[in-house]
Design a protein around this nucleic acid. Structure first.
Ligand code: FES
Ligand code: FES
Lengths: 144, 144
DNA sequence: TATAATTCGGATAAAAATGTCCGAATAATA
DNA sequence: TATTATTCGGACATTTTTATCCGAATTATA
């Protein structure tokens, strides 16, 4: 459904969120370890999220990544997907027509709209805090 | 959502279905032209669909591809996705955990299940005939 | 039988996604 | 100030996906 980059982004943000809620800054090394992702590749994704102002990075010794409570509450998974994967999944045609539109719908258009809207609503209504809370109350996990 | 291969597969099957319903056999050349896809790449996909017994290919001069009425009715989009893209989209974890399961759910698991199930049901309930009918009654198109 | 039109299958190429490496910049701290 | 731990950013490498090419096999038909 989502690219690996996006999956890593989700997991990293949740982990950073967990730390930030405990007032802890965390570094790339620990992030990658805890979400089971390739370290250098994860670095690129964090840079992107940082430039998109979803998280804050601090350089130098004792540096690392944090995410503010405000961002935890206001950042929806939708925003993360847009930053990392773009909007194709929310707007693209199921059959790959250059543009999905109801004027000239493809044969799957109306059924597919429902799926896409379901996805869109889910991603719009879930913010990072929801995910972090799920992970911190033990009802869900970040790695197997 | 789906790979390009899968998108081409959908479009090709619909076009072949349209021809087959008119009792016409059609060839790679016309398929690629009508669905606006790269010819040789489309060939590979058709071979795969042919091996999966979703369509019938005939070699030699005046050869081409046909799909039986029976297959049009019994083949669901779900089956096409499984053949071309595998089952990842129907079973994979939203966060990329190695296995999605409700015993050890990721923080998005239950919300994501709903999206995935919506997609799964849509693809299970739509067969090729539905798509072909939409395209033949003029209510939808295969290319822009 | 010869020719032409077609699918088949393997090799190769190009592009995109994923992943790694390294030196520079930065900042804490000894 | 020197060292150390860290992010940044660019270059590079690998893998996967997408795309092309070509010769062989097949079959209708002239
Ligand atoms: S036109 Fe294909 S999904 Fe809308
Ligand atoms: S465990 Fe992640 S979607 Fe089920």
């Amino acid at each position: 459904m989502f690219s690996k980059s996006c999956e890593y982004a989700f997991r990293a943000l949740i982990y950073i969120g967990l730390c930030s809620q405990k007032g802890e800054k965390t570094s790339l090394k620990y992030i990658a370890e805890n979400i089971d992702s390739p370290q250098s590749f994860t670095a690129k994704i964090l840079q992107k999220l940082s430039k998109a102002n979803i998280l804050v990075s601090e350089k130098g010794a004792n540096g690392g990544f944090i995410i503010t409570q405000e961002k935890l509450q206001t950042t929806r998974l939708y925003d993360v997907v847009i930053v990392v994967d773009g909007d194709k999944i929310f707007t693209g045609c199921a059959l790959g027509l250059v543009k999905c539109n109801s004027e000239k719908p493809c044969p799957l258009h109306y059924s597919f709209l429902e799926v896409r809207e379901k996805l869109r609503k889910t991603m719009l209504h879930t913010n990072l805090e929801d995910m972090v809370n799920g992970a911190s109350d033990g009802s869900s996990v970040l790695r197997l």
